[in-house]
Amino acid sequence: MTPRPTRRTAMALVLAGPLALRLSPASATPDTMRAALDAFTGGAAVTEGRVTLNVPLLVENGNAVPLKVSVESPMTEDEFVEEVAIFNELNPLPDVIRFRFTPASGRAAAETRIRLNGSQNVHAIARMSDGSLWSAVTDVIVTAPACAET
């Protein structure tokens, strides 16, 4: 594990953050996230709802942010959630994780811990077995970004 940044290094990084982001060779932006999201949806319409995305609103340590997602679905052979994709706006890559469910999952819910490089929106898109797409967005404030201590 990497050492926790001290207040001084944290302050320096806060001040240098915007510059570092601009110089970074690979950094997602809301635009690259939008592109990744469109690649997932195939440009089809996404409706807000049915998806519950739980991420703490205020996070101290961006290295391990608890994330829980669940989707309203009966999870039967006829009607179930196929996949849930999580996207972020400011990490080097827009993709976070993709959960693939089956009717045997019983419940379309999963949790993990993610890295977040700064305060941003986190998006969850669910694709149902009928092809419909549903989404949820959470705005997260991160005080110590994940990629900071390098």
Binding site: N63, D95, I97, R100, A104, S105, T112, I114, R115
Partner: peptide, 25 residues
């Protein structure tokens, strides 16, 4: 039979934790 799968990207924290469900039959 596969009941759950995850495609994981670098945005998942070190020492990854996963929680999910399955229906006992």
């Amino acid at each position: 039979t596969e009941v759950f799968r995850a495609e994981i990207f670098p945005a998942i924290a070190a020492n990854p934790f996963l929680g999910f469900f399955l229906r006992a039959v």
